[in-house]
Amino acid sequence: MSFPRFKLVPGPIDVDVPGWELTGDRVTGERIVECHELFHPRDENADIEAALTWADGIIGARQVWTHVRERGFDRWEAGSLSDEPTDADDREPTPADVRALIADATALQERIRDVERRLRGSEETRHTVFRLDDAAGRLTDVSQALEETASELARVRAVRDGSVCAVPWGVCPEHGNTLVSSGGRTRCKTCGRTWNYDRLGVPCGEPLTHKVTDAAGGSFLACKAHAMDATERLVGGTVTPLDKDGRRD
C-alpha cells in the first residue's frame, strides 16, 4: 500500500485569504509546509496550472500530479510513500520513477542554457558556446525517450496486474472520452480537470466496474468511464456492472 508523498490543497490560508497549501516529505526526510495565495483569482484553470508549477518549484523537481475529488473537496497528489520499506535497488521501477528522470533532464537542460547565456555575454567567451546548444537540444530527445518508456511500462504493468482498467488510452473518470492532450499535459473538455502528463497516451488504470461484451461474444473488463463510452459505441453487445466483489457475473 502506498500514500502520496506530496499534497497540494486549495483553501483558506488566512482569514478571508483563499490560496494553496503544499505539504509533503522530501526523500531527505525534510517536511514541506508552504502556502501561497491564489495566483489567478478570476481564472480557475490558470490558477491550478500556476499552483502546480509553484509546487514543483518548492519541491525542486517536476511532479506527475493527480487530481483527487473526495466528498466534494479537491486536492492534487504526487509521489508516493510506501508503508512497507523496500530495497530501492531490487524493486521494479515504476512509470513515476522513469518520469522523475525527465525532471532531472529538464533541470540539467536549463542549467546548460544558463551557462550558454552567460558565456554569450562576453566577446572573449562567446566563441566557446557552440557545443552547448547542441548538448541542451539532445536532452529534449532524452526526455522524449523517457516519457515513451514510462508510457510503455505503464501499459505492461496495467495489463500484467489485471486489477485495473487496461484499455490502452485514458479517459476522464467522470465524463469519459472527453480528453485532449497538448505539450505533455491533458485536460477534460467538459469539466476542465487536468493531468500533468499525456493521459491519452497511457493505459487507463482506473478501477474496474463493468464487463463489456461485443456482438461476437468477446469481452473485457473496463472502468466506469470506458464502459460509458462503450455503451455509446457498441452495436449488438452488452455492458453489465460487476457486483461489489468484482465478480464478472
Results as ranks from 00 to 15, higher is better:
residue 189 K to S: 05
residue 156 V to W: 12
residue 162 G to I: 06
residue 195 W to A: 07
residue 187 R to D: 00
residue 220 F to W: 13
residue 196 N to H: 05
residue 138 R to M: 12
residue 164 V to E: 12
residue 197 Y to N: 04
residue 137 G to T: 12
residue 226 H to F: 05
residue 212 V to W: 06
residue 168 P to N: 14
residue 213 T to W: 09
residue 161 D to H: 13
residue 156 V to G: 03
residue 170 G to K: 01
residue 176 G to S: 02
residue 226 H to Q: 07
residue 205 G to R: 03
residue 149 T to R: 14
residue 173 P to G: 02
residue 161 D to V: 08
residue 140 T to S: 13
residue 154 A to R: 15
residue 138 R to Q: 15
residue 184 G to I: 05
residue 186 T to R: 00
residue 145 A to D: 15
residue 170 G to C: 05
residue 157 R to I: 15
residue 192 G to M: 00
residue 162 G to M: 07
residue 203 P to K: 04
residue 208 L to T: 10
residue 152 E to I: 06
residue 207 P to K: 08
residue 176 G to F: 04
residue 187 R to A: 00
residue 188 C to L: 00
residue 149 T to L: 15
residue 138 R to L: 14
residue 217 G to R: 11
residue 145 A to L: 12
residue 170 G to L: 02
residue 138 R to E: 15
residue 197 Y to A: 05
residue 198 D to C: 02
residue 159 V to M: 12
residue 177 N to R: 12
residue 205 G to H: 03
residue 134 D to L: 14
residue 168 P to A: 14
residue 170 G to H: 03
residue 218 G to Y: 13
residue 226 H to D: 03
residue 199 R to Y: 01
residue 220 F to S: 07
residue 158 A to N: 10
residue 173 P to D: 04
residue 222 A to V: 05
residue 215 A to V: 14
residue 148 E to I: 10
residue 184 G to N: 05
residue 156 V to D: 11
residue 208 L to Y: 04
residue 173 P to H: 02
residue 167 V to I: 15
residue 172 C to S: 08
residue 157 R to E: 13
residue 171 V to I: 04
residue 223 C to H: 05
residue 147 E to Y: 04
residue 185 R to T: 14
residue 174 E to F: 01
residue 217 G to A: 09
residue 163 S to F: 09
residue 215 A to E: 13
residue 165 C to I: 05
residue 177 N to E: 13
residue 178 T to S: 08
residue 135 A to M: 14
residue 143 S to W: 06
residue 141 D to Q: 14
residue 213 T to V: 12
residue 210 H to M: 09
residue 145 A to M: 14
residue 190 T to V: 13
residue 189 K to Q: 12
residue 213 T to E: 09
residue 176 G to E: 02
residue 220 F to K: 09
residue 176 G to N: 05
residue 223 C to Q: 04
residue 187 R to E: 00
residue 218 G to S: 15
residue 171 V to Q: 06
residue 173 P to K: 02
residue 215 A to W: 11
residue 216 A to W: 08
residue 148 E to H: 13
residue 153 L to D: 06
residue 201 G to I: 01
residue 171 V to Y: 07
residue 151 S to W: 12
residue 145 A to Y: 07
residue 212 V to Y: 08
residue 186 T to C: 01
residue 208 L to M: 08
residue 164 V to Q: 09
residue 142 V to T: 15
residue 171 V to G: 00
residue 135 A to H: 11
residue 141 D to Y: 10
residue 138 R to G: 07
residue 196 N to I: 01
residue 200 L to C: 09
residue 179 L to F: 01
residue 145 A to I: 06
residue 226 H to K: 04
residue 185 R to M: 03
residue 184 G to C: 06
residue 223 C to S: 10
residue 222 A to Q: 03
residue 166 A to E: 07
residue 218 G to C: 09
residue 211 K to H: 10
residue 203 P to H: 13
residue 158 A to G: 07
residue 161 D to P: 09
residue 150 A to L: 06
residue 205 G to K: 02
residue 164 V to S: 12
residue 150 A to R: 05
residue 212 V to L: 11
residue 176 G to Q: 02
residue 187 R to H: 01
residue 136 A to D: 10
residue 199 R to M: 01
residue 215 A to Y: 11
